[in-house]
Each structure stands twice: as C-alpha cells, then as structure tokens.
C-alpha cells in the first residue's frame, strides 16, 4: 500500500509503471503523491458541519451542501 502522507509510494515501485499504465490505459487523476503533503489549508465550515480540519476533510452534511 502506498502511504499518501509520506509520498513514499513512488520510491517503492517495483514494476515498470509506464509500461503497465500504457497497456491498461491507466492515468491517475490525482496530483503526484509527493505533492500530497502540501495540502494543509485549513477550511472553516459552519452550520451543520464539522469544525475545521483540512481541505480534504469533507465536513458538511449532504443536506446542506450538494
């Protein structure tokens, strides 16, 4: 398993990613794992919502935000 917070996934690759990706039409829709630590922005949400965690924490219920 990759570790999203340390960005260590890329260091552990033991297969030819380019070849596998080309063969199976694989494309990641995320930024590279090394960028993941950069997302630390604190979002403050209110109403029926959780208090601020980070931008990737979904802190609003689906009745309020769709």
């Amino acid at each position: 398993m990759k570790d999203a917070d340390t960005g260590s996934k890329e260091e552990k690759k033991e297969y030819n990613e380019a070849s596998v990706f080309a063969r199976y039409g694989i494309r990641s829709l995320s930024k590279s794992t090394t960028d993941r630590r950069k997302v630390t922005k604190e979002s403050v949400a209110f109403c029926c919502s959780k208090a601020s965690l980070d931008e990737r924490d979904i802190n609003q219920c689906t009745q309020c935000v769709i």
Partner: peptide, 24 residues
C-alpha cells in the same frame, strides 16, 4: 457543485480523505 467531495479532486488535486462519520 460539491458532488460528495469530487469537487475537492478538482480544487485540491486529490480526492477527499475517507469520511468516518458525518456527525460531530
């Protein structure tokens, strides 16, 4: 639209964290 956090994939470049409970 928010779309269960898929918007975050667009704005932050990564999917949302897994959600453990929606009630605080």
């Amino acid at each position: 639209p928010f779309c269960m956090g898929i918007r975050v994939l667009y704005t932050a470049g990564m999917p949302p964290h897994p959600r453990f409970g929606a009630c605080s």
